[in-house]
Design a binder for these strands. Structure first.
Lengths: 160, 160
DNA sequence: GTTCCTGCAAAGAGTTTGCATTGTG
DNA sequence: CACAATGCAAACTCTTTGCAGGAAC
């Protein structure tokens, strides 16, 4: 599915969720959802806020936080807790569930899917008589390429 | 190895690390290391600080944070970033590397070791030409026991 | 018109930093 | 006695909250 089509589908899902819950369809919510689906990935709330401001949209930080909560609730956005920094978000519609590998040298975030992970998680949860709802696997790693093009960027996730 | 013996070994390692780096052996560092090795697990900085205060030790929050950094640096303590809350710490000497399963109903933290995980991580890192240094796998799950004894406790990790 | 949502600014949690004082080597 | 470590408080980052005004239904 093309990016605009996914965005449209996301908007439709949001609308359905809002009317079902008796909540309101506001410009702000549409704008935020669009930015997330067409322009950003692995962003934090403040980056999203600045992005919207630069586009000339006057949306407050509070609304950004509120709307992110809403979008996570209705499943259109996923929330991640990597090391120290702020909470990061990602669009989730039309994307396979995946995990993350963080480069300790440049802060780059790589995504991967490993089909072996699901059974492991199920097995562990069963051992404790628990029903798993979600998981986060984060691998922290260094680049082995001698001339990694990212080496120049500022490292993140470095110490904590 | 018995708990006091592990603590002693940890103190020895700390001393060695300090002299090697030209740093100072202080009462505070010894007290903090001892509390971590003998009295606490999955604690945050503030819990550790209150714990020390209750024992009659007057150690400042700043020193607690500094010392935790130091202990993580020299490998005696592990740092974890679970969902929203504060950073958690754990003693690491004499313990196998393990991952965590968090109960969404009561906030309990279970530990598990899965030998299949290592190869998966190696494989993923190799795919990206990266050298993995550490990882965090967190499984969030609900209890399936109808009368979970923990159900009464305050849930943590519930929403974010 | 009612209720939800927004924007603003203040508060809050967790952590870091600056600086004078203390204490180790 | 030099310089690292401590204690204290203020600053800082990220996020939440309270409340008045404004927009959706």
């Amino acid at each position: 599915m093309s990016p605009p089509a996914v965005t449209q589908q996301a908007q439709d899902i949001l609308e359905a969720y809002l009317s079902q819950k008796g909540l309101r369809r506001t410009e702000e919510r549409r704008h935020i959802l669009q930015a997330i689906y067409e322009e950003l990935s692995h962003f934090d709330a403040d980056t999203l806020h600045r992005h919207l401001t630069q586009k000339g949209l006057r949306i407050s930080r509070a609304t950004v936080y509120n709307t992110l909560d809403l979008l996570v609730e209705c499943g259109l956005v996923k929330r991640y807790h990597f090391s120290e920094g702020p909470t990061l978000y990602e669009r989730s519609l039309g994307r396979r569930q995946h995990d993350h590998l963080l480069c300790l040298d440049c802060g780059d975030i790589h995504e991967f899917c490993d089909p072996q992970l699901g059974p492991i998680i199920e097995g562990v949860a069963q051992l404790f008589q628990m029903r798993p709802t979600r998981h986060e696997l984060i691998i922290y790693a260094h680049c082995t390429k001698t001339h990694c093009p990212n080496r120049t960027k500022n490292p993140t996730f470095a110490t904590k």
